[in-house]
Nucleic acid binder design. Structure first.
Length: 289
DNA sequence: ATTTCGTGTCCAGTCCTGAC
DNA sequence: GTCAGGACTGGACACGAAAT
């Protein structure tokens, strides 16, 4: 993990404030909320060129606003992974007028992110949302109106549920995607191919219970798989879950440079095969209740 | 040893913005 | 209008690791 090693003091923060752009603040805010993002992901959401993103992130690292690490990879070299550093957290806290002490970024927590066995999962799920933001930036009338991390999504799940006593699902994120006057809400389930079918069906059972207890319309549940084969097998397992018909579920396998807003989604409704629709088209797909 | 893949680094030139 | 400083762009190159 590369840190600047600096401790924040008022004079240093004042000097920094003069040099930071609105975009720098946005990057820091994203890192605070979503914990870890790679260079390409940050470039997608905040920069117009990859090399400019690389240059600016090096500057922010040197200033102690962000810290970075590179996980080991089997093939080639991994991109730099960025997390917010202590000074970056102080800058945001000063900006928000929040308690500086509460913003303290503990290095052991940063290391925990870097060493987490869930790192690939977290980065993958974040990449899903940054790809949507990138698509919106180039796509005219499209917009990712909201992007919640797993923790904040849990609160959103609670908000949809009128009764207690059921096992609530734990999505990897929540999003609100809009194109023109149409919009779709969704929970994301990012699959890295490591879970058993039993674990997947248990998840699906929770969504079925949740849909039954919900006091208002439930967002789409989007399962993303790493390969077509994994998706086909998982769909078979998910279909066997009791009550799945009332849950708005769609699946996709995303590989390479496929954008998640395009026609990659296959609703799980029993009557449908594997015909793919764009994310925004899910609003017109009927769900059997 | 060489190639391939996926990434970061460096640098020269250009653009933008604010001060004078 | 000129100047300076910072931001941006695109291309060339380097690096680490696996595959050939």
């Amino acid at each position: 993990m590369e840190h600047s090693g600096r401790r924040p003091d008022t004079a240093h923060l004042l000097r920094l404030a003069r040099h930071l752009t609105d975009r720098d603040h946005r990057v820091l805010s994203l890192l605070r909320t979503h914990r870890v993002l790679t260079t390409p992901q940050i470039a997608q959401v905040a920069f117009t060129s990859h090399s400019r993103a690389v240059q600016r992130l090096r500057v922010l690292t040197g200033l102690g606003l962000v810290a970075r690490f590179r996980p080991r990879r089997d093939r080639g070299s991994a991109p730099w992974h960025y997390v917010i550093d202590t000074i970056g957290a102080h800058v945001l806290a000063a900006n928000d007028g929040t308690d500086v002490e509460r913003s303290r970024v503990r290095q052991d927590r940063q290391l925990a992110v870097a060493r987490s066995t869930h790192l690939e999962h977290r980065v993958g799920a974040n990449g899903f949302f940054t790809a949507l933001i990138a698509a919106a930036r180039t796509g005219g009338r499209a917009e990712l109106g909201e992007w919640l991390n797993a923790t904040d999504t849990a609160e959103r799940v609670d908000a949809h549920c009128g009764e207690w006593g059921i096992g609530l699902p734990h999505p990897d994120g929540y999003g609100h995607w809009a194109e023109g006057d149409r919009s779709v809400e969704f929970f994301l389930e990012w699959d890295t191919g490591t879970e058993t079918h039993r674990q997947l069906t248990r998840k699906m059972e929770r969504y079925a219970d949740f849909t039954g207890a919900a006091v208002r319309a439930v967002p789409w549940v989007l399962f993303v798989f790493p390969t077509p084969r994994r998706e086909t097998n998982a769909r078979g397992a998910l279909r066997r879950v009791e009550g799945v018909g009332r849950v708005p579920v769609a699946t996709a396998h995303l590989s390479g440079a496929q954008d998640p807003n395009t026609a990659v989604w296959s609703p799980l409704s029993p009557s449908r095969g594997l015909d793919r629709v764009a994310l925004i088209e899910l609003v017109s797909v009927e769900v059997i209740v």
